[in-house]
Design a protein around this nucleic acid. Structure first.
Lengths: 336, 336
DNA sequence: AGCGTTTACGTAAGCGCTTACGTTAATCTA
DNA sequence: TAGATTAACGTAAGCGCTTACGTAAACGCT
């Protein structure tokens, strides 16, 4: 909170401009009912005095636009950073602030939703994946439901067990595409380095891969959904020595970890083993070697999510599907 | 704003719990003056009723912790994403929300500072680079000064023309290290692909490079401080055909762009030309080839910036310097 | 010209909360 | 055990703003 009794109130501006508080308020908010010249005058006085609206007071009184809450697992992760970029872009178009929260586990998500509610945000975009087991997200879902019941809007990205607007990346089909691609190249022994099995995103991608690959999936390692998870997953896999000809990371970030481990061990990609990922984060094309991946337009998904919350509240929840695109680059090739 | 007349107020909780508004407030905020058992009872009632504090009201009334404002050029850029991650981490430790704003040019920065002020944030972290010409940032600086005068705290990362806490990455020394490294490898014709010449960050890195490289700098291209800027800068350079043996991008992101253009043209790195960058963003090690760079710990810089704002206000402004570390990887080698 | 409308403002009632100040009962000090 | 603290709670005064309502003047119409 700003201290110092020097804070300039709207009342001060009104007095200095020789008008009532009401007129001053109307002049600044653009509400009609004030002659243009007077309004202009008030605005000049306000500017000259360095007046700054107190959004808290404005919100309390019922005016003002609300801000947007965005919950991500980790903003340092390119996947979420790109979603955030999309969300912030749209928010800025509408003069809305975006409050970003980190929340990696269900308890943290719940806490952040509570906080966002306390801040009376108008909408919440939940970017993290939902869990297969509905009970894990139950508390958070209940909190979101209460938020919606009180007029708040919410949009989730990915499958969640909650009646809210949703942006759905087609993870299953993406998994199929990657699997198909590998199969066509001739791979019959592929390993998967995945994130936590409890996440819908992971489960869906896994389902798509398995559907196409079938018995060709000879190993699945569940690790943290991060680069570090990718490196340990790959290391674990190598220790198993299952003679795989391809490894797919369940996200590009994980695939980057896989690539790192492989490089470290002197295993060539794609000559010795092929590697693929999901998402097509922007650096995917610049990796060593450039990563084959199933592109899902994260920034667009972010903008779409926020846009959903801004539509007319009627006939919700809405869902918007996003299809993927297989991007074949250098990290995949025929098996030896 | 939440709609529906169903909103549960603290007064409702107080009534239901059979206590006064004041006691209810004290129970929830932890203020002493209430017997532990009564406070506990009130809290239970509040929870059972699904009460959610109205932060706007709380802030207006003078209680409550304020949130943090963070201004970045583009959250999708790993450089800023890592800073943001650091800031959000510290903020979470203190139960503070972080409001993130995108602002790429001085006018946008000014607008965002105004908005942040309106939201009565307690502190503002300005992550974007300052400009060489003080007049470009004059308006924003004045706004920040006013913010500080009214009790707000501000921390900037990098050189800015304002009396505020600052975290200073040693860009000049980083430039020297990169230059030195190239010189030692035997390079005598190096090109620089830089961001806007008006930015302090660019100017400082440039100064360090020039100090060491001297006449060895045969070309400097100023582009957008982004991957795209890197690609066009490299393309421009290639068109000039100056026979350079090394190219340094003024940031890793730009270097990535350079690498992309080189790869596209079939120019090998580092055999045909060496490439280096700045920052050591987390993917730098995973590039093709792994990028030699001057590491500046962005996440730490983010946490340090926010921490500065939380210190005792006395004896400010403070400045905290961050030194760099030369990370030699595969993208640099002796010239042909 | 007379009456209803609209326009331009002022007055004042909150929005939901914290906290200074009072009041009473319980605890302590000498 | 009387007087002084202290603890536990209630009362009420705002925090800075928006907006419903009221009023007076200006405007429109027949």
């Amino acid at each position: 909170m700003a201290a110092r009794g020097t804070t300039i109130r709207l009342a001060d501006v009104a007095e200095r401009a020789g008008v009532s508080l009401a007129t001053a308020s109307r002049s600044l908010t653009g509400t009609r009912g004030v002659s243009v010249t007077l309004a202009e005058h008030v605005r000049e006085v306000a500017t000259s005095m360095g007046y700054v609206t107190n959004m808290h007071a404005r919100s309390l009184a019922g005016g003002g636009e609300s801000s947007i809450g965005l919950i991500v697992s980790e903003i340092g992760d390119p996947y979420f950073a790109e979603i955030a970029s999309g969300v912030i872009g749209v928010a800025a178009e509408h003069q809305r602030m975006v409050q970003i929260s980190h929340a990696a586990d269900p308890a943290a998500v719940l806490a952040q939703i509570r906080l966002l509610r306390a801040y009376r945000v108008g909408a919440i975009v939940l970017a993290g994946s939902g869990h297969i087991d509905p009970t894990m997200d139950a508390a958070a879902d209940a909190e979101l439901a209460a938020f919606q019941a009180s007029g708040g809007r919410v949009a989730v990205v990915g499958r969640h067990h909650i009646a809210a607007d949703a942006v759905l990346p087609d993870n299953v089909a993406a998994g199929r595409s990657i699997g198909q691609h590998l199969l066509e190249l001739g791979h019959r022994r592929v390993a998967l380095v995945a994130g936590p099995a409890t996440l819908n995103t992971v489960a869906d991608r896994l389902a798509g891969l398995r559907e196409v690959l079938g018995d060709a999936v000879v190993s699945v390692s569940h690790q943290a959904f991060s680069r570090a998870g990718g490196t340990t997953g790959a290391a674990e896999l190598l220790a198993l020595n299952r003679n795989v000809t391809a490894i797919v990371g369940l996200s590009d970030v994980m695939a980057i970890g896989v690539l790192a481990t492989l490089r470290e061990r002197g295993i060539r990609v794609p000559e010795d083993v092929s590697v693929a990922g999901f998402d097509d984060i922007s650096v995917a094309a610049d990796l060593s070697p450039a990563l084959t991946t199933a592109r899902l337009p994260m920034a667009e998904i972010g903008t779409a999510a926020l846009r959903l919350t801004m539509l007319d509240p009627a006939s919700r929840p809405r869902r918007k599907a996003f299809s993927h695109e297989l991007i074949v680059r250098e990290s995949t090739g025929p098996p030896r």
